[in-house]
């Protein structure tokens, strides 16, 4: 008798949970691709930004929409992620509806994982610049790096590297590792890589750092007459590694370059750091799970 009563209780509890879950989760997508069910903003995953909260970021996009400088129907509820892996898992588990990343990263991802597809966000043509960050007091290094990057732009070296390490990488393949030139007597320049943003920054199966950033580094090292020493660090600890003088240079993904002025300049710059001129620009795209 008791057993029967317990079973009844368990079944009704399970049914209750299922009903509540259905009510909370809603019943399927709406027609507007940028609004989730119930007219709520679309849940968007982004990589963590330093000096701005998720709410502020969403508010800025909304305001830009009101100003007419950003599609007004694109209203987002933003969630920050520490790295691409966790953001991708968030998308797979449907904690978020879309994830924001770069075109080259999206191409790399879509060639390896057929669960996702790009959304129409690309039409917005929002662009970010990739740069290096050094400590604010390292003015000489900043100047040298700026000179080297500008010279690489002028003589076409950067275009060649973009072609070789980003554009020419065949779908499903990885960019090859770069041999960093070492010469005796040269000063060491310690650079942090994360391996979190292929094909720009990745670590190969044999544990060697590779990708476009290492190719840029190799060239910068030659021009600065420095021996480059690569240090792998978690992306969340890059700023600490720079300020704690564990490394001299970190890669920083964004200097806002968008024509919509959605985000204030340097909103993602760590305090006490200065960034070089961008060495690469890429469009921001959104990915969603295929329907």
């Amino acid at each position: 008798m008791n057993m029967k009563l317990n079973m009844k209780k368990i079944v009704s509890l399970l049914l209750g949970c299922a009903l509540a879950g259905t009510m909370l989760a809603g019943c399927g997508p709406t027609d507007d691709p940028h609004k989730s069910s119930g007219g709520k903003p679309l849940k968007l995953g982004m990589l963590t930004n330093m000096n701005i909260s998720e709410q502020q970021q969403a508010e800025l996009m909304k305001e830009a929409g009101k100003r007419g400088s950003f599609p007004v129907n694109m209203v987002y509820d933003i969630t920050y992620y520490d790295n691409l892996n966790s953001m991708q898992m968030g998308l797979e588990s449907k904690s978020i509806d879309e994830m924001s990343t770069y075109q080259c990263v999206s191409d790399y991802l879509l060639a390896r994982n057929d669960k996702f597809a790009q959304t129409d966000f690309k039409q917005v043509k929002l662009e970010d610049g990739f740069c290096c960050a050094v400590r604010e007091e390292d003015k000489e290094l900043l100047e040298e790096m700026n000179k080297a990057i500008s010279a690489m732009k002028d003589d076409g070296t950067l275009d060649k590297l973009v072609q070789e390490y980003i554009k020419d990488v065949k779908a499903g393949e990885e960019p090859h590792a770069v041999e960093l030139e070492k010469a005796e007597g040269r000063r060491i320049l310690k650079v942090a890589v994360t391996g979190d943003l292929p094909p720009i920054d990745l670590v190969l199966a044999d544990g060697k750092p590779a990708g476009f950033n290492t190719a840029v580094l190799s060239e910068v090292g030659k021009r600065l007459q420095r021996n480059i020493e690569i240090v792998q660090v978690d992306s969340g600890a890059r700023a600490a590694a720079l300020s704690g003088k564990t490394v001299d240079v970190i890669f920083w993904a964004v200097i806002p370059e968008d024509k919509f002025n959605v985000r204030p300049k340097d909103f993602d710059l760590p305090k006490g750091a200065a960034t070089t001129v961008p060495y690469y620009k890429d469009e921001i795209v959104h990915l969603a799970v295929k329907k």
Binding site: N85, S86, R112, V203, A205, G207
Partner: peptide, 15 residues
């Protein structure tokens, strides 16, 4: 953990 993270990023198969 770091190796697993790197592998997940490289292969784009985090799960």
């Amino acid at each position: 953990t770091r190796v697993i993270y790197n592998t997940a990023s490289r292969t784009m198969q985090p799960m």
